[in-house]
Computed example of a mutant assay.
Amino acid sequence: MKFFVTVPVGLEFVAVQEIKDILSDSTIQYEDQVNISWPSNWFVTKSEKKCAKRAVRGLESEDLVKVKPIDEISEANKLKPDVMPGLIAFETDQPQSLKCELKSVKVLFAEILEAQLPDCREDVEIFLKQGMNLREDSGWISALDFWHRWKESHTREGSATDSLSFRVTFQKLRSYSSSGRPNFSFSSVEGSDWLGYGIGAAMPHWRVNLKHVHIVCMAYKSSIKLGIALTNLDGTNIRNREAFGATSLQVQEAFCLTKLSSPPPGSVLLDPFCGTGIIPIEAVQHLVGDRAVYGIAGDVLSEETERAERNSIHSGSKNLIEVLSADATRLPFRDKSVSRIVSDMPWGRRCGGFSRNVSLYPKFLDEAQRVLEADGEAFLLTLEKGLMR
């Protein structure tokens, strides 16, 4: 059975490992090409010079105040041009194991078919309006059958094949670099309209209904994948969270980042720009037992710490997380007392601004260097790449 999932762009290799841990028999498509695929706004820093960990091989470690962007890795380790960013395709004989939640995954799809787009706009329109030759491909039969069984086991609501209702979304995926961006000759709306018409013509008993089965077409350059969504596309960001802020980090990114940081058992993981607190919450949720850590969520804004407090209670993590009001430039911790700093830093877009970050970033990095242990690490997310150099 074939599936594909959408995951945080640049952290595909973390999701690959999670899939392999759950599905021991899985065959990952392009596995050798998704080991390292970092976008340019992820940074790893270290408090002392030493060899970088295996997860970021090819990246030379730097002092904390000399941060190096992770995308400066040898070209051999980057994604090849034909691989869809933020998407992992795999095949397994144990689809029942997918009933457990994949924490790095945004949406899980049963794959219907994979095809190549024609070169010109007119041919693309004809191809999609013909339903991508859906009737001639057997993939939709197994995908639809699995969707029925999935829904029966999850919602106890099944529907007959001939009365299936659907909606179509056409997504054009982007590559990491501007030079690699595809130049589609049509819009996503046009792609959805053409493909919706084609599926309706190929499957005349199916009815359009925007609230029901979501059929998604992922397009990247000349490659496209068609799949049926098994998980809710509208509920992918609510895990462990009931309070949201203006700049809430996606839970899948928070999970991947904390998993990547790999804090030592019994250590302290700090997020000094915690916002809704989702990073330390995800850390204490998946690092349990002998791998358990203690999370600290700090923020200078009282409304953010209130949200983090609510979410720690909502997620059942209250006893494993301390939420406190703290200025990231004057952290209330002893020297070398924190093992990991993992944070989504202020970008200066929706709140704050560049001028504020010019002052904030150097002060925070100096303070982070002070509180990190000798072999501590900071994993930071920001768009202010110029300020991190």
Rank of each mutant, 00 (worst) to 15 (best):
V189A: 10
K172T: 04
N357W: 01
K46R: 04
V189W: 02
I19A: 08
K363W: 01
N133V: 07
Q171I: 12
V189C: 01
A292D: 08
L260D: 05
L87F: 02
I112R: 09
V323Y: 06
L230K: 07
P69V: 10
L195T: 11
R349I: 15
F4K: 04
G131A: 11
S177V: 05
I126H: 13
L233V: 12
R356S: 12
L324V: 13
D21S: 12
V5S: 04
L102T: 02
L108V: 09
T27D: 01
L134R: 09
K46D: 03
K103F: 04
W140P: 11
I215F: 11
K151Y: 07
F170R: 01
S312G: 15
A283C: 15
L360G: 03
R181G: 03
R57G: 02
P332E: 05
M388H: 06
E91G: 14
A76T: 02
T329Q: 12
V251L: 10
Q33K: 10
S261C: 14
P272S: 11
L113T: 14
G58C: 09
E304I: 01
D82G: 04
K68P: 01
P264S: 10
Y294W: 09
G295R: 11
K151I: 05
Q369D: 12
A202P: 11
V300P: 04
A243E: 13
T92P: 05
V284G: 01
I224E: 06
F244M: 07
S37N: 08
E62W: 00
P332V: 02
A229R: 09
W206I: 10
K103I: 08
Y361I: 11
L372V: 14
L365P: 01
L360V: 03
V124E: 07
G316P: 15
N133T: 08
S159L: 15
D299I: 08
F186N: 05
I112Q: 00
K259L: 12
H286Q: 06
G180I: 05
D290R: 08
D234M: 14
L113K: 09
K259G: 00
K50F: 02
I281F: 14
D366K: 11
L173H: 13
K225S: 13
P204W: 07
M203Q: 15
F43A: 00
G196F: 02
S317Q: 13
H212M: 06
